[in-house]
């Protein structure tokens, strides 16, 4: 086993949103395909929602990556909270209209009306729960013109179910919910992720028992799992540096190490 394998494995679980890191899981693939099909439909808006860490951003990034070669797609990972700035950004990116000074909704709608784009551009808005209700209402009005198609992602919060809001209900929208992984999905996710980075040895270290423990700690949340496994391999690397690998074993992931990682990441309050 090479000395850097734990560091390589650790880097696999860095919390980055990249289409390269997208892991094909059966359920996720089905959802992704249905999202792609929805974009082809004459829908005004598509809503992607789910709890934090369920892979919404990854989904959106993957979609952007896949669609960018065939149609006009714009991804906004961070929300543009200022209304004028939002219109100006859209005008420049979609219609290549640079606008100096303030741009209001009426002026933007004029730009949209004068546009001569053949295909309908797709705008992907991540973290849409941060947009104000007024701006969300205006986004809905823009989508009503059928000149721009919006795919937005939302956090499904317990305090306030944003989907229940009126402006989300009054239009025919496609809504796709993303959920946490199951225990078996989590195992596939971890192993596929490691195998993608040629970390076969570490991928084989994950037994059903260890994945179940990880699942119990993270509840199948991808972000938490990434965080936990990053720390786990960090601990492995530390043991390796101290020549203590024999103490913990390298054939399978010990529960002790998983719990130590959970303590370090705060998943276990110790």
């Amino acid at each position: 086993m090479s000395a850097s394998i734990y560091i390589n494995s650790k880097n696999v679980f860095l919390d980055t949103v990249s289409s390269k890191d997208y892991v094909q899981l059966d359920r996720v693939s089905t959802i992704y395909q249905s999202l792609k099909d929805s974009i082809k439909k004459p829908l005004k808006m598509i809503l992607l929602y789910g709890k934090p860490g369920t892979g919404k951003s990854m989904f959106l990034t993957k979609l952007f990556h896949d669609l960018s070669s065939s149609q006009i797609v714009h991804l906004y990972k961070t929300p543009i909270l200022d209304e004028s700035e939002f219109y100006k950004t859209l005008a420049q990116d979609i219609f290549s209209t640079k606008y100096n000074g303030e741009l209001n909704f009426t002026q933007f709608m004029k730009i949209v009306g004068n546009s001569e784009i053949g295909s309908i551009p797709v705008v992907l808005l991540d973290e849409a729960q941060l947009y104000s209700d007024i701006l969300m209402e205006k986004i809905r009005l823009i989508s009503d013109t059928r000149t721009i198609k919006f795919v937005i992602t939302l956090h499904k919060t317990e305090k306030e179910d944003l989907i229940a809001k009126e402006h989300f209900q009054t239009r025919i929208w496609e809504t796709i919910e993303l959920e946490n992984a199951s225990s078996s999905e989590l195992k596939i996710y971890i192993q596929k992720k490691l195998m993608k980075a040629n970390c076969f040895d570490t991928a084989n270290m994950f037994t059903g028992k260890s994945v179940n423990r990880i699942y119990k700690l993270t509840n199948g949340n991808y972000r938490d799992t990434n965080k936990l496994l990053y720390t786990l391999f960090d601990i492995y690397a530390a043991y390796e540096d101290n020549y203590q690998l024999s103490n913990i074993g390298t054939t399978q992931i010990p529960i002790k190490l998983i719990e130590m990682s959970a303590i370090h990441t705060g998943l276990i309050n110790a």
Partner: peptide
């Protein structure tokens, strides 16, 4: 680098507690 000894101690405490 992680302080594994400290982490082990915390883990042991947690185990005893649990």
């Amino acid at each position: 680098m992680l302080n594994t000894r400290e982490l082990e101690k915390r883990w042991l405490k947690h185990k005893i507690k649990s």
